[in-house]
Write a protein that binds this DNA or RNA. Structure first.
Lengths: 154, 154
DNA sequence: TTGAACTGTAGCCACAGTGATTACGGAATG
DNA sequence: CATTCCGTAATCACTGTGGCTACAGTTCAA
């Protein structure tokens, strides 16, 4: 029943926000990122590859290498990330009806059109959110944590 | 990379349209439906179960049993189907970040909120389409086929 | 009343997508 | 150089999905 066991989008968003939250210009290694996201460093590199190719982040090998944002956080909206990782794959699952059946062919066509419509709706939702927004929420949460701690809450 | 190998929504939409397209009140058996959708009859029954429980379709065992619509096609919108099969499962994949990391916790929260927003956008898209619409497209396609055939096109 | 035609489920199997892990080559730094 | 990184391939385990078989229960017709 459960759909989307694919967590690459979530991981990518996490990494981008993490990178945006680093105060000095220091890059973060895949290993450091893997700690925070709780996924394998190799997987981090695999997921971030397309984002690097698209120019959202940079990566450098070597002693003080690692990952860093290539754009201002406010210029990275989540629909870019979605598109890079999801591509144009169907969002709704499509089956493979009997090609002889007219109903099957027609429904297939309708579902494909519908899928594109839904994909557009998703992109529109994600376009409104940038890494900058997420970073602001992190800071706001930090503040809440501090305030709560000051009051003695758990 | 490819998401949603789950084709239950597509199968359900197909079946509903098929049922709506049956002229006389005759019910269709899982076997007949499995031919058109090209999936196993047992799977048909599994997928349609929630739709039956929700009152969208009826099923009857026995000699002239099978499946039939319980509602007028125009009253069945696709977001109902989506909700019944998808439930409230996350549309975006969610990972499981290190609970100690503040960025992880915050991004997690943001992603959950975002997921609900996206789910709403999907539902809104699907709500605009009913089985009636799909059936009309089937008929329209039929007409196109006939016209094309009359002109000698393949 | 018997048998045929259905649904409802449970159980098992195969396939595919996802991600962990290991391994190794190459580049940058000191 | 030796170390620290990335890039990538190869392999493995886990899980979701759906095919398939089997069987119990229900309906209807002869």
């Amino acid at each position: 029943m459960t759909r989307s066991t694919n967590t690459q989008f979530a991981v990518a968003v996490h990494v981008l926000t993490y990178l945006a939250g680093i105060d000095d210009g220091r890059p973060a290694s895949s290993d450091e990122l893997s700690k925070s996201t709780n996924v394998n460093p190799v997987h981090i590199r695999r997921v971030m590859g397309p984002l690097r190719d698209a120019g959202l982040v940079r990566s450098r090998p070597g002693v003080h290498g690692g990952w860093e944002l290539a754009l201002t956080p406010s210029r990275v909206s989540l629909d870019q990330v979605w598109l890079l990782l999801q591509g144009t794959d169907p969002v709704l699952g499509l089956h493979d009806p009997d090609p002889v059946c007219a109903t099957g062919r027609s429904v297939q066509k309708s579902l494909i059109a519908l899928d594109q419509k839904v994909a557009g709706a998703i992109a529109a939702s994600l376009q409104q959110v940038t890494v900058q927004h997420l970073l602001a929420e992190v800071h706001s949460d930090d503040g809440a944590d501090l305030r709560a701690r000051r009051k003695g809450s758990p």
